[in-house]
Design a protein around this nucleic acid. Structure first.
Lengths: 341, 341
DNA sequence: GTGAAAGCGCTAACAG
DNA sequence: CTGTTAGCGCTTTCAC
């Protein structure tokens, strides 16, 4: 009944036991060397390293996860990967996580609240933590996610009532500045294009724009969304409103508007001013270049990973990081035409 | 020395044994029910299901992976996530994989060949398969990846010498049609803007454009890349070449060119025609809308997943799917100005 | 500083 | 059809 044991596992995959056998040490020692543990004599460390190299051994990550209880995987859930807004964000987190030995499982809820919940729960089950980008779910759902006891991070949405770490770009002040700028140019009839219904940012931006009424500006609200197509389709309604300036929820919608106006021979900004939000790369490559708000997505990504990483290492949750956005004045805005002042 | 055993594991996580105990069956039966195995009596199936539901049990995916040898994870490696080209692709694969119970680990090599190799190897170690999107690596490296014995799929690059499954959109015929169309409009001096150095598509497209010389068209080659910025920066060189038509490697570069020309007061297409490739959403929202080639990325994504899925279930590798692209004529192309014919 | 051994939670023979 | 049991490959006490 003694083990069969020469230590060499049959089959094709090299295990830690093969290395142990080759280096004439125990598997525990190999494991320690691989983990970079200090309490191994330099001589053994070298011997193990040499065996690992010569044999071409690679640890089996799943076995490692099962034994250690950590997967070194983090979920990243976005409402819509096709939205330019998430590029820089995901990309930056991908690289930072990679650097720290973590990998991201990306999922896309397609703006579907039910899918968001399901995906969130499932992701959390197979990862060490979850990053929710602009989640649309109700607070109750977010709370459930927290109950799993794993680190959860919410990006670009402020949830006051929850002990969850959050990283957000503050829309309100920048949008307020932008709106003020437009009013100062002399515009008195403005159209605001709302973003996705459940978007926190959309509510924040609207909250800022609404203040213009205090200055006697007339605001027409139009439900549009976050795509170029939607912006483009909104043009007739914009024209009907007789607005001389259009404040869009984001750059995408703004681009759709600019193109739609241009197609109809309406000059931007001479006849109608248009502003966006986010400062996506395309906003500089519209004619005319878009007046917008720079939202530091890269920074959100890098802070987000830093916070998540800290939490994975035991930091307590609930930190809140607020980053500022700032208006970028380009050429899609100008004073309204003389006859409409 | 008998097991301590009331079956209830201590600690907070519910295991399959808790369910087995609750339903008064063996763990094997629970496992079978969870796997949807046919050979369990309906009565037990129901009892187990009920216990699972009541207890709120969820299988531990890592343990499952270790025991079964399958992770239900697939790697997806792209050269640059910030390139619009990969949106539809990744997004579609994400959803199709999700539907089949798989999850994607997305990685971005940042157009770095070394990183690509590293990431590829690492991903393959922790997943059941790997999808390489437009890989830039040398054939030798791809072969190494295949040697791991796991399914590997190459997208948007044809590698003749390798027994690896491939899904590609054929650039050559469509680019040839587009080039012919431009020549037929009467253009005799054309500039071609090359894409990323190691891109297979870039070589294919150039191979097609080059044929114009046979028709006596004068071609100026300019190394540009795949971004709007790069296209924009290339404008002075384009003007120096005195070309009346610009064929860009992709839409992004083309957009940069259109904007750059417009800024200098050069009218597109009256004075200079410009074409792109890919038909990204933005190409319809440029002024003027871009003449380009529709590359069916969504279809690539869905076929890609189908092939990967088949391979995961034992299909033999080496299939090759070629999808067609087709020119989309919009308004950025026209006959050259009279005086330059 | 090092090794032996007990699991991590599940699947998959194998026996009945 | 159902149960028993031996691992999957690694980490991590616990002794020495």
């Amino acid at each position: 009944m003694t083990p069969t044991g020469d230590g060499r596992t049959t089959g094709d995959r090299l295990t830690i036991r093969d290395v142990a056998h080759d280096a004439q040490v125990s598997v525990a020692t190999v494991s320690r060397v691989l983990a970079g543990s200090a309490s191994v004599s330099p001589a053994l460390v070298e011997r193990v390293r040499e065996s690992v190299r010569r044999l071409g051994y690679t640890p089996h990550s799943v076995a490692r996860s099962l034994a250690s209880g950590r997967t070194r995987l983090v979920g990243a859930l976005v409402p819509n990967l096709a939205n330019h807004y998430f590029y820089a964000l995901i990309k930056r987190m991908l690289h930072d996580a990679e650097r720290d030995g973590y990998r991201l499982i990306v999922a896309d809820s397609d703006e579907n609240v039910v899918a968001e919940r399901e995906l969130g729960v499932n992701l959390l089950h197979q990862t060490d933590g979850l990053i929710l980008c602009s989640p649309r779910a109700r607070v109750g759902v977010l709370r459930q996610l927290l109950d799993h006891g794993k680190p959860v991070l919410v990006l670009n949405r402020l949830v006051d009532s929850l002990p969850v770490s959050q990283v957000v770009v503050e829309s309100y002040p920048a949008m307020r500045q932008l709106a003020t700028y437009v009013a100062d140019l002399g515009h008195r009839r403005v159209a605001y294009l709302h973003g996705p219904a459940r978007s926190w940012h959309s509510r924040e931006r609207w909250r800022a724009v609404r203040l213009l009424t205090r200055r006697g500006v007339d605001i027409t609200e139009i439900r549009v969304g976050a795509t170029m197509d939607a912006g483009h389709r909104a043009v007739p309604q914009i024209l009907r409103s007789d607005a001389t300036a259009v404040l869009a929820y984001n750059d995408l919608a703004a681009i759709g508007v600019v193109v739609g106006l241009t197609e109809r021979g309406i000059r931007v900004p001479q006849e109608v001013s248009v502003t966006g939000f986010d400062d996506i790369p395309h906003s500089r490559f519209v004619t005319p270049p878009l007046t917008t708000v720079r939202s530091p997505q890269e920074e959100v990504g890098s802070v987000a990973w830093k916070v998540m990483s800290g939490q994975l290492h035991g930091d307590s949750p609930g930190t809140r990081t607020v980053l500022a956005a700032e208006p970028v004045i380009r050429n899609s805005t100008a004073a309204p035409p003389e006859n409409s002042r």
